[in-house]
Structures are given as C-alpha cells and as structure tokens.
C-alpha cells in the first residue's frame, strides 16, 4: 500500500443549519486517481473548496502529507503542493496564454527574481503548453480563447506547478469526445508521474474509462466507495440517482 496523501476526517461544512458536508471521511493515496461523483448538491465542489480553504470548514481535519491544512491561507495551501481548477474556467484574459502559464510556473520564485522580466520560455512552461495543445496560441490574449481552450489553459497552469495533489472540478464539462479522451490520458499520465488526482465528474463514460476508484457522495456524506463496477452494482447509488428527477440524465448514464 502506498502512503497516504490526503486524509479528511469528520469534516463538517455548515452554512447555517444546512450541512453541505456532513461528517465526511476520505483517504487518498499517492498516485491514485480518485473520481468523486454524486447528484447536484451532494457537496462535491464544497469538498474541494474546503481542502483549498475557499470555504472554511466548521469542524474536522484535513491533513495533506501529514500536515493540517485547516487554518492555512489559500496561497499557503497551494504552496504545500495542492493545485486545483474551477468549474468555470478562470484564466487572466488580459495576459497572453504564455504569460498565464508563466506566472503560474513562477509561484515559487523569490520576490526579487519575480521583479525581473521573463527571458525566453522555460522548458516546463513550453512542455505544459504543448501537453494541452496551446503552443500555437501562446502569444494570444487568454481572453480570446474558446471556453474549451480556457479549460485547457487552466489545466496547463495547474500542471506547470507540479502539485503533489491535483483537484479537478469537472475538467471535461463542455469538451468534445476527442478532448475528453486527451484529458483522460493526461490525468492518467500525471498520476503515473507521482501526482495524486481527485476529479469531480458527471460524465459516467469518462469515469468508467479513467477512474481507479470512485467515491459516491450524497447529501454531504459518502454513500459508497469502490471500483467503477462495484459502484454501478450498488443499490443505494441507483436509488440516489433515480430518486432525483433533475438528475435523470446522470441516472441513465450511471445505470448504462
């Protein structure tokens, strides 16, 4: 068994009386690619948000490589080696594609080096632009990219930081089939290089193809965990999806 990377214990995130996350435990191991699925409102994004301190947990503990994250500021958490993307791609529209990746890559530079101009393009920046097929667009303002390309750019920005734990919030939403495949391969590759990956995803086809292990969330709790096949056999999972009409599409996919 490889070593534990992320350990979430008794996590509660309460907004007033509503518990978005309700006493949740989750353990991720090194090199693992974990998919988190669940109906809308299950608390999937809130989980990522509380790991990165975008929302402040009410109680519980989140340990990353043995270090407690709760109480750390957002940028300090990133500096421990955690990267994330957002559901709505957020890149810096006024900077070029290259500059977006470059400032992401420079986050560990000393302040004095940060004051200097960029000379040329570092290998890792070029590599990560290449891995998301944005090399040709590198001198264009990021604002001119399409939605899908912005998603790619965001992935490049987080990859170039070489995080030990990568949190992806619906990375393939709105992507074409070919792009999905590429993303999946990228995720597999990242994991092989030693990064632990946690992916929130709705697309069951995508999950089936690339997940090592799936965690199903429902109403802030973990419903079940296991391989894709295990989860698909699970009676409660079927109930959860079928019980919510607005997730009918997700249900159909889950059962397919």
């Amino acid at each position: 068994m490889s070593s534990v990377m992320l350990e979430v214990r008794n996590l509660v995130v309460a907004f007033g009386a509503f518990h978005a996350i309700d006493d949740l435990d989750l353990t991720l191991h090194e090199h693992e690619v974990r998919f988190v699925i669940g109906p809308n409102g299950a608390g999937k994004t809130t989980l990522i948000d509380s790991i990165t301190n975008l929302v402040r947990p009410t109680s519980g503990s989140i340990r990353f490589a043995g270090e407690e994250l709760i109480g750390k500021s957002e940028h300090a958490i990133v500096r421990t080696g955690i990267g994330r993307t957002f559901q709505k791609p957020s890149v810096f529209d006024e900077l070029t594609v290259l500059e977006n990746v470059d400032i992401a890559a420079s986050f560990r530079l000393r302040f004095r080096s940060l004051l200097k101009r960029r000379r040329g393009i570092s290998d890792e920046v070029a590599e990560s632009l290449d891995s998301v097929n944005l090399t040709a667009q590198r001198d264009e303002p990021a604002g001119s990219l399409s939605h899908g390309q912005k998603q790619w750019l965001e992935v490049a920005m987080v990859l170039v930081q070489r995080p030990r734990l990568l949190l992806l919030d619906e990375p393939v939403a709105g992507m074409t089939e070919k792009e999905r495949l590429h993303t999946g391969e990228l995720i597999t590759q990242i994991a092989q290089q030693g990064t632990t990956v946690l992916v929130i995803e709705h697309d069951m086809d995508f999950v089936r193809r690339f997940a090592h292990k799936v965690t199903v969330m429902h109403e802030g709790k973990i419903l079940t965990e296991g391989t894709v096949a295990d989860v698909q056999q699970d009676e409660t999972v079927r109930e959860v999806y079928l019980g919510r009409p607005r997730d009918a599409r997700g249900a159909a996919e889950a059962l397919a």
Partner: peptide, 22 residues
C-alpha cells in the same frame, strides 16, 4: 517583469491569484 504580470492578474481576479500560490 513577471511581477507586473502577477499584478495585472491580481487586479483582474484577486481570488484566482491566491490559488496560484501568490
């Protein structure tokens, strides 16, 4: 300089910059 780029990024989306580790 790179700082200038980060400054523009901060102007346009301060919260996003946090999640780049700045």
């Amino acid at each position: 300089g790179r700082y200038g780029r980060v400054l523009i990024a901060t102007r346009d989306d301060e919260d996003r910059v946090r999640f780049l580790g700045y």
